[in-house]
Simulated assay, not measured.
Amino acid sequence: MTHAPLETRLPDTGPLRETVLRLAEAGARVADLVARGPLAGDLDAAVGDSGAHEAGDAQKHLDLVADRLFHEALAGAPVAWLASEERAEVEALAPGAPLAVALDPLDGSSNIAVNAPLGAIFSILPAIDDPLASFLRPGAAQVAAGFLVFGPTTALVLTLGAGVDRFVLDREAGRFRLAQAGVRIPTQTREFAINASNRRHWAPGLRAFFDDCLLGREGALGADQNMRWIASLVAEAYRILVRGGVFLYPADARRGYEAGRLRRLYEASPMAFVVEQAGGRATDDRGARILDQAPASLHQRTPLVFGSADMVGMVARYVARA
């Protein structure tokens, strides 16, 4: 596949349209590679001596390939600056262009070998002359954001700041087709997603919320809850957009986890923009709105809680009274 147009309500012309279309095209190319799995080589192979990138997570061969494919797609686009989770510094693409793109080119790379969902996340901001300052702004400065999921179907979720649309890649036609306009996160839900193996490291309020979820109808929540954990942020977010629920990746007492693990710029801010545009809520693990917060550095980490607004608010209340 060499071209993947997007059926969407983008402006007929302009920088934002061109940039989103190029991101969609790169996403389709990565999806083709992911679908080949081991037939495309050892995509799960660790890279370098340390096997870790600038943000400190394990770096796989597919991380670098995906980063290159997105970089190639954005070359020549109206994008002044590109910040990638896989790169230490901001890259200059077309200085003077009106947009800046922050990108997690491959989310969930721990799932490569086990054939579980992967994805990519992007954030689009207005560019200013200072490349670093273009990105170190509150999440509310975004003009568009979205993510791709490489699963049984390849899906693209997109917001331009006026609602959320969901697309599915039609491989025969070579284009993303609109599957649902105006996505809204269901408000009635009985699902939560968290890595329960870390319970002993959590703050008391989060442990109390988790314990009441396990108690179900016999506890304070008064209803049985289902626990989910896919180890892929994009897959968790996609499920919440479809079925509702809450996702939690809190800070905890382990070394290196004191400020959470998800990147504010590449993961938390774009997810928060999408979630809020779909009627949900996104906060840190103390209840502070993610979109009000600006990263202090390109790879700064943050706790993240998002999903159905009522459930996110409930988590904040448990934390506040602990």
Rank of each mutant, 00 (worst) to 15 (best):
L221K: 06
G279K: 13
A268T: 12
D165G: 09
S134G: 06
A144K: 12
H201W: 10
I230C: 02
A181V: 05
G216F: 10
A253G: 13
L156H: 11
F209L: 12
R243H: 13
R217A: 14
V164I: 08
A251C: 01
A155V: 11
V234K: 03
Y249E: 06
F273S: 08
L214T: 11
A144Y: 08
D211F: 03
W202T: 04
E276F: 04
G244P: 00
G279T: 11
R228V: 05
L265Y: 01
A235I: 04
P152Q: 14
R243K: 10
F247L: 04
R261G: 02
V242T: 15
V157W: 13
L178S: 06
G219P: 03
S134C: 04
G146C: 03
R184Q: 15
F192N: 09
N198Y: 14
G139L: 04
A179D: 15
A181R: 14
E258K: 11
R177V: 15
G245Y: 12
R228L: 05
R239V: 02
V234N: 00
N198T: 05
S232G: 00
G139H: 07
Q188S: 09
L265V: 01
E218R: 07
F247A: 02
R264T: 05
R166E: 15
S269W: 05
Y266N: 03
A231W: 12
P270W: 01
D170C: 09
G146N: 04
E276W: 05
A140T: 12
C213H: 09
F147D: 00
V234T: 12
E191N: 08
A208R: 15
I185S: 08
A193S: 15
A203F: 00
I194V: 14
L221D: 06
G279L: 03
V157M: 07
